[in-house]
Amino acid sequence: MKSIEERKYKLELDIEAGLRITQHALNTFRDNSCRRAFSLSEMVLEPKSSSISDIFDNVFDYAVKGYTSAADCISLDDLQDMQAFLHIASSAMEFYEANRLTECENVFSAMIARAKLDLASGGYDYAFTEDGNLFISGYKDDLLTLSEVAFLANMNEKSVRNATHQTKDDRLETVKVGGRTYVTPEDGLRWLCKRRGFIPTDTLEVEAS
């Protein structure tokens, strides 16, 4: 189990790596004289402030810490910027044989998972639609994936999957849809509330750091 501080620092490094490798690709397109093998391992990455890092800061404070005051700062334009960054930077990372931006992806998924729980529990309602248009591809507010449960529990997916076995005490109840395994938000919240790594949503106006 990673601490919040460890997850936040890894997120900051992921963002900086994504920006670096995207800039390298753009420079190569402009002037192929800088075409070369790109190695992040040879660089010293230090987190720097940027527009995309500010967006991820708010998402982290809602998704991981559970601060609804941070979610109120996330606009639909921010969601689009996040998705664009993940699609572009992650693809560039793979092309240049670097590691994927796993913490960025995890935080984004945890935000969606927490919003599903909050909506189902009648608490905080963060909308991923505008005028009926869906802003998150494949978003289903009625079911959680096992990986989404794992993000919220700060556990690995294998441990969560093990908790679904019939022989387990206080097992995580699941449903099958189209051959895939899901968890209802109600069952997910019941199970998560007994997990040490889960942080419930705080609807108080806590100032996000």
Rank of each mutant, 00 (worst) to 15 (best):
F135D: 10
F151D: 14
L117N: 04
A113T: 04
T145E: 09
F128S: 01
D54I: 08
F60W: 03
D78K: 00
G18H: 02
S137I: 14
S53H: 07
G123V: 14
S53A: 15
S51W: 01
S33L: 11
E157Y: 00
S51Q: 12
T68Q: 01
Q23R: 11
A37V: 14
F60M: 04
I55Q: 03
D125F: 06
V64N: 01
A92V: 09
N99I: 09
G66A: 07
A37G: 13
T28R: 01
N58C: 12
L45A: 04
T129Y: 06
A153D: 11
Y139M: 08
E103Y: 02
S41Q: 13
L134S: 15
I88Y: 02
F128R: 00
T102W: 08
D31Y: 03
S33A: 14
F29V: 15
F151Y: 13
A70L: 10
D142F: 00
L119N: 13
D31E: 11
G123N: 13
Y96Q: 04
A92F: 09
D72G: 10
I52S: 05
F95Y: 12
Y124C: 07
M82R: 08
E46N: 10
F60P: 02
A110H: 01
D125Q: 08
E157H: 00
C34H: 04
L119K: 10
A115I: 04
E130I: 10
F56Q: 01
N156D: 14
L86V: 14
L101F: 05
L144V: 07
I74G: 08
M111T: 05
S147H: 06
L119H: 13
L134W: 12
D142E: 12
R20M: 13
E94R: 09
E42M: 05
H24A: 12
R30G: 08
G138N: 11
D54Q: 11
H87C: 06
E46L: 11
S33G: 11
I21W: 05
S39N: 14
V107W: 03
Q83E: 15
M111G: 06
G122T: 10
A37F: 12
I74K: 00
Y126S: 02
A84N: 14
R100C: 07
Y126Q: 03
V59H: 00
F38P: 06
V149P: 01
I55V: 15
K65E: 15
E94M: 09
L152F: 08
P47Y: 03
I112V: 15
I88M: 03
S50W: 03
I88Q: 02
